[in-house]
């Protein structure tokens, strides 16, 4: 588990958000399975050399988003009940963020809706050809 997580402290993206994104991504990709135990806050802090409170903040948000659950005294686990986000929904989340960023850039450099649509169609043909 620790091996799949890395943080880039020099990035402008807050460390707790980097941890959240990577755990969501790991769940989406099935690297982290439903019911699987996460490292303790203390252990992950030591593994990543980041402040324990920063890891705790990431875990709290992941709990709020129903990605993980914490059983006092037992640790944190990837949620498996109906509330949990399905891996497909998590994958869609990741893609949606990327689309948003790309389209925002397209709009800001002055593309019209039709021009953006054309680019999207071309990209779809490239990446989803049968």
């Amino acid at each position: 588990m620790a091996a799949v997580l890395t943080v880039d402290p020099r990035s402008g993206v807050p460390i707790y958000l980097q941890i959240i994104e990577q755990i969501k991504r790991s769940v989406a990709l099935g690297v982290l399975q439903v019911g699987e135990q996460l490292p303790t806050v203390k252990q992950l802090a030591i593994d990543l050399t980041v402040n324990p409170n920063t890891v705790a903040r990431a875990y709290r948000e992941l709990e709020r988003d129903a990605v993980i659950e914490t059983a006092p005294g037992r640790g944190s686990f990837v949620r498996g009940d109906g509330m949990a986000q399905s891996p497909r929904a998590a994958a869609a989340d990741i893609a949606r963020t990327a689309f948003d960023a790309a389209l925002r850039e397209a709009k800001s450099v002055g593309l019209t809706r039709d021009e953006a649509q054309e680019l999207i169609e071309a990209a779809l043909d490239r990446w989803f050809q049968e």
Binding site: R10, G12, S108
Partner: peptide, 17 residues
């Protein structure tokens, strides 16, 4: 952007910045 700027972007800052 509404004031007429194009290529508007938001840049992240690291702690050194």
């Amino acid at each position: 952007a509404r004031a007429g700027a194009t290529g508007v972007r938001v840049l992240d800052l690291n702690l050194e910045d």
